[in-house]
Amino acid sequence: MVNDRGQLYTMEGVAAGIIMLLTAYIVISTTSIYTPGDTHIPDMQLEQLGSDVLAMMDTPNSKEDDESQESDLVTYILATDKTSFRAMFRDYCNMRAGSGDDLKMNAYVYFHDRDTGTVRSYVLDEEDHATGRENAVRVTRWVQLPERPDNLPMAVTDIDNRPQAVLLEVLLWRT
């Protein structure tokens, strides 16, 4: 009783199976392409954390009557105190439940050179070596300095000695 009619069921079963498997394969491969959206969220969280840390470092802990007290951040930049800056930044970043957070950071200060009309920079802290492949976020903070910072790197000792606004940029990434 085996005839050609029977083979059609088999073929159609195979056809249906191929259609479904192919669709599932396409669906899986397309959705996994769209998931890079996820990587934006850790960026957003890291950026928020970095901004908060810089803002809090730039908030004086107390303010007496008329005296305008300098924040820790201003103090560190004025003294180009890399060690204390890094220690405090990491300390604020790592205040959390559970284990610490392995954050890497580099910090640069951008200042405005009025003689040449350009914006120049120097390194405040470049202890963590960036390979350039990291997915780093950049957080910034305006800092008002009353005078030229001390202990500057050789190349930028010609910063004007005047009250000025500089921009502190911190690159943050996780390994």
Partner: peptide, 10 residues
């Protein structure tokens, strides 16, 4: 007769 299997797959 067998077309409905393909239809289900679809």
């Amino acid at each position: 007769d067998g077309q409905w299997i393909v239809l289900m797959g679809l």
